[in-house]
């Protein structure tokens, strides 16, 4: 996949993990830079100009979330968090700080590659694309028409907005709060049950089997992700 020799900065204080990532990712044609601490990482971003950062949260000097926050002050470079922390608050905190995605250790190389692809695509995709296509899902934004496997379906305005957000960020996890804020407004940020009901209805309309969804995946405690 590694077209045009993309550059990856791997930030982790554990040498075995850096070694593993270097081996796995170089094989895919990426150029690897390494940093073992938060400060090194911030320096490396300036010096090495990576295309994407793979960032551990538990760094010896600055916490990964803080690194993300500092980077986001001046850079839109994609950041994928790799961490042993599996509590949803940690995931939400990292995503809120501006990380593009979050993977819990241990993880498979395939999963990491998929997340990286999504994050890198964000840089190249045009935000105003009028036609969105994910698997059998088709959305024509200019005409507000949605179809599944060629069959047009009717969505309420709210369901449409949710689906649009998810499709525009296909492959990326969207937090509950982000969805609520974007679709209903900030006043509804904690009205989780409205979101649940709408997602449930949406799934019934677009999923072949709502009990085992293939498009809208739940990230427990964090949000939803539309998978292609």
């Amino acid at each position: 996949m590694a077209d045009s020799n993309q550059r990856i900065l791997v930030v982790d204080d554990e040498p075995p993990i850096r070694r593993y990532l270097r081996a796995a990712l170089s094989a895919q044609g990426f150029t690897i830079y390494e940093a073992a601490s938060g400060q090194e990482a911030l320096n490396a971003v300036i010096a090495d100009r990576p295309d994407i950062i793979i960032l551990d949260l538990g760094l010896p000097d600055i916490d990964g979330i803080e690194v993300t926050r500092q980077l986001r002050e001046w850079s839109q470079i994609p950041i994928i968090i790799l961490s042993v922390r599996e509590a949803e608050q940690d995931k939400i905190a990292a995503l809120d700080a501006g990380a593009d995605d979050y993977l819990t250790k241990p993880f498979g190389t395939g999963e990491l590659m998929a997340r990286m692809r999504v994050a890198l695509r964000r840089l190249t995709s045009k935000p105003d694309e009028p036609i969105l296509q994910v698997g059998g899902l088709h959305m024509d934004i200019s005409r507000r028409i949605v179809s599944v496997d060629g069959d047009q379906i009717t969505l309420t305005p709210t369901e449409y907005e949710i689906l649009r957000l998810l499709m525009q960020n296909a492959g990326k996890v969207i937090t509950h709060h982000h969805l609520l804020r974007q679709v209903w407004g900030t006043a509804y940020e904690s009205e989780m049950h409205i979101l649940r009901v709408n997602i449930s209805n949406l799934r019934r309309k677009i999923e072949p089997d709502p009990a085992r969804p293939t498009y809208i995946h739940t990230e427990p405690g964090v949000g939803y992700r539309l998978k292609g």
Binding site: E88, H193, R196, I199, S200, P210, A211, R212, P213, T218
Partner: peptide
């Protein structure tokens, strides 16, 4: 516990996934 009103259907789907 972080109690929220949740959809049982979603719960089962997530577990199966």
């Amino acid at each position: 516990l972080h109690l929220e009103l949740e959809d049982i259907q979603d719960l089962v789907g997530t577990a199966l996934e």
